[in-house]
């Protein structure tokens, strides 16, 4: 049994220490907002925060997150009123939507450190997150909007 702090709650997990955090979140805890896309840190669909930093849950074993704070899209402050979520809705960013939790969590990591990022900073920070539907322009616009830039 491992104990895990997810979205402010301590949860007990019956999984071996090398289990990727992704499966613990999705299948053990039913926090399915975090998505599986590649399993090798190539797409960003599984992005969550570890002590406030965006990480790829698919390559992060359970043993590495014990005693740390994990935040998933479900734990994003404000829920639908979160400014990033609001910006995502305003820009109508999602198409199939599958990549968007990861995109939002990645963007949240940027704004936490750099409240007014330049376009170049946004692009550089978001480059690990694939959107196969091609909603990149709306994603960048939404980050700019959330940062108060539009």
């Amino acid at each position: 049994m491992a104990s895990l702090n997810v979205n402010g709650q301590v949860r007990q997990i019956d999984a071996s220490p090398d289990t990727p955090l992704l499966w613990v979140l999705r299948e053990h805890l039913k926090l399915t907002g975090t998505k599986y896309g590649c399993g090798v840190a190539a797409c960003g669909a599984c992005t969550v925060h570890l002590d406030g930093e965006p990480i790829r849950a698919c390559i992060t074993p359970l043993s590495q997150v014990e005693g740390k704070r994990v935040t998933t899209i479900e734990g994003l402050p404000g829920g639908e009123n979160n400014r990033l979520v609001q910006a995502w809705i305003a820009e109508q960013a999602p198409q199939c939507g599958y990549c968007q939790s990861g995109q939002i969590m990645q963007a949240a990591g940027l704004l936490a450190k750099t409240p007014k990022p330049s376009r170049e900073q946004i692009v550089a920070h978001m480059d690990g997150n694939i959107c196969r539907c091609g909603s990149y322009a709306q994603i960048v616009a939404a980050v700019e909007r959330a940062a108060g830039g539009r």
Binding site: L31, T32, G33, T34, K35, Y36, T72, I73, E74, L76, G79, E80, V85, W88, I89, Q92, A93, P94, G97, Y98, Q100, S101, I104
Partner: peptide, 17 residues
């Protein structure tokens, strides 16, 4: 606006997976 966008922006949309 698309009706599915809020759920797809909050992780609430449920896919087969």
């Amino acid at each position: 606006r698309r009706w599915d966008v809020p759920a797809k922006s909050t992780g609430k949309a449920v896919y087969a997976i």
